[in-house]
């Protein structure tokens, strides 16, 4: 075989064809990947649209009453979602009251206290809290934590805080363990890893020169955190909090177990309540009329829109830090 036979006469005609095939392959691959990328956008839009469509009957029938009304009556077919909306916001707020300071503490611990060798394992352990499936939190909450609350924490709260003028009503009622406070605490535990891991990452990304100059001026570790680290990472810290809040708003299974699925409004945090996600999870397969089903899907739409806004704020705050670092 003589190689020149192949290359010489054929080459001019052959090469353009190969080049053409290559660009065709390139174009096809590019379109394929672009299509997959567009699919991500499509899912978001389609999810919102399909729920708006599925909930249109409820929105049209009840109008604003759907958000401001508080009776949820499957038999009378009147649906107002105030109680689940209130429950979602209050349980998530309790979660934030717990998760934000704890997460900040963990981030400070990992940045300023922990010796280097222990940072990895501790960070991993905290992140494992996020890996535990939410249904496990729910089961543990129902079988272990709710009885613990009922027997030890809630009687104490009622006794100490119950008689107080403004706070009192929040902590009144029989200690049954299931309710807004228990759900909020569990949500708080669940959101700790999300908030703390972002905080830890941005704390570590603070330029060493900044921290070291503060130390050189005689600042204590806490003063470095308060006057250098946090101001430098402020928007990411806020972003992390919003991220955790978004997670807490949409959390379903853990809350479903311990909220009690009550549709009566009660001020007390010790009483059973409801949340948007829990109401959907509990009632969806039982919804026997078109309007009931539509009301639950409309709830899903509300949840989606609210979490989208919260998570978008979180993302925007976090992107700002990324830009600064770049």
């Amino acid at each position: 075989m003589d190689a020149s036979v192949i290359t010489q006469p054929d080459a001019p005609a052959f090469r353009p064809r190969r080049a053409h095939a290559a660009t065709r392959g390139d174009r096809a691959f590019r379109w394929l990947t672009a299509g997959a990328a567009w699919l991500v956008l499509f899912v978001l839009v389609a999810a919102a649209a399909s729920m708006a469509w599925g909930g249109r009957l409820a929105f049209r029938t009840f109008g604003w009453d759907f958000i401001t009304g508080s009776d949820w009556d499957a038999v009378g077919q009147r649906f107002g979602a105030l109680v689940p909306i209130y429950g979602t916001l209050v349980s998530s707020a309790i979660a934030m009251l717990i998760a934000v300071p704890i997460s900040l503490g963990i981030a400070i611990f990992l940045a300023e206290v922990a010796p280097r060798w222990i940072r990895g394992p501790i960070g991993l352990a905290v992140e494992l809290l996020a890996a535990i499936p939410s249904i496990i939190y729910g089961m543990w909450g129902l079988f272990v934590f709710a009885p613990f609350m009922a027997n030890h924490i809630e009687p104490w709260l009622t006794e100490r805080l119950g008689p107080l003028p403004i706070l009192g009503p929040l902590f009144s009622g029989p200690p049954i363990g299931i309710g807004m406070l228990t759900a909020g605490i569990i949500l708080g535990i669940m959101t700790i890893p999300f908030i703390s891991s972002v905080m830890r990452d941005v704390f570590q990304a603070v330029p060493p020169a900044l921290r070291e100059s503060a130390f050189a001026l005689g600042a204590t570790p806490w003063e470095v955190v308060r006057k250098v680290t946090i101001p430098h990472t402020r928007s990411a810290v806020i972003g992390a909090i919003f991220l955790g809040f978004g997670r807490a708003l949409g959390e379903t299974m853990a809350v479903t177990f311990v909220l009690g699925n009550a549709h009566d409004f009660s001020v007390s945090l010790l009483m059973p309540g409801n949340s948007i996600a829990a109401a959907i999870a509990n009632e969806f397969t039982e919804a026997d009329s078109a309007i009931y089903l539509s009301a639950l899907i409309a709830l899903g739409f509300l949840l989606f829109v609210v979490t989208f806004i919260v998570l978008a704020i979180a993302k925007l705050m976090l992107v700002r830090v990324e830009r600064k670092a770049r």
Binding site: V43, M51, L249, T252, L311
Partner: peptide, 24 residues
Amino acid sequence: TIRFVNDILLSAPSIVIGLFVYEL
């Protein structure tokens, strides 16, 4: 934009995805 949307889907409530597939 796609990264932004993807990060939001990453944290979006999973029950909502269930509702979406139910409708779909």
